Simulated scan of single mutants.
Amino acid sequence: MIKVIHVEDDDDIRELVGLSLDVAGDLELMSFASGSEAIQAVEVFGPDLVLLDMMMPNISGIDTLKATKQIEGYAEISAIFVTARVDGNQNEAFLDAGALEVIVKPFDPIELGSEIK
């Protein structure tokens, strides 16, 4: 089982990702509307992967990832950004922050689980 923390401020997208990953199987998901909530859950849930939106109120996806990597034992946590905001410089910033991949919104909900695995 791959444990995934998903951070997305849009309720509809958060629900769609949840349904998509549930169908994919082999993925245990915890979803949060904010980076702050997700960071607090890291040590309790013990995720293998953080799935992040970029643009969120209060704390961005990149800052959420940086804060997660500061938690003992999570410096090398895998991360994937799911965002509508993608250009050459932004994509580079995601990868520099430690992301493995960037999935562009709108995404194919049927393929999302496979892409993450």
Rank of each mutant, 00 (worst) to 15 (best):
I39V: 15
S78W: 05
G98N: 06
F94E: 02
E115D: 10
E111A: 15
E101C: 04
I59M: 15
S36Y: 00
I71L: 15
M56W: 11
I62A: 10
R14V: 06
V7I: 05
E111L: 14
V44M: 10
A75P: 02
N89M: 14
E101G: 02
L21H: 02
E72C: 04
Y74E: 09
F81E: 00
G73F: 10
F107H: 07
L16C: 10
A79S: 12
I116D: 03
V17Q: 06
L65P: 12
A41K: 05
I13D: 11
E37V: 03
V50G: 03
L112M: 02
K117E: 04
S34Q: 07
V82T: 02
G25C: 00
G73D: 11
K117N: 07
H6P: 01
G35W: 09
Q40A: 15
D12C: 06
T68R: 04
P57K: 10
A79G: 08
L100V: 13
A75R: 12
K105M: 12
N89R: 13
I59H: 11
S20M: 03
S78M: 11
V7Q: 05
K105S: 10
E43A: 14
P106S: 06
V102I: 13
G98Y: 01
L49E: 00
F107M: 06
E37S: 12
E76K: 09
S36N: 14
A41G: 03
F94C: 12
A38N: 06
Q90G: 10
V50Q: 02
I62V: 15
F32L: 03
I5S: 01
K117A: 02
N91S: 14
V102E: 03
D26G: 01
G73R: 05
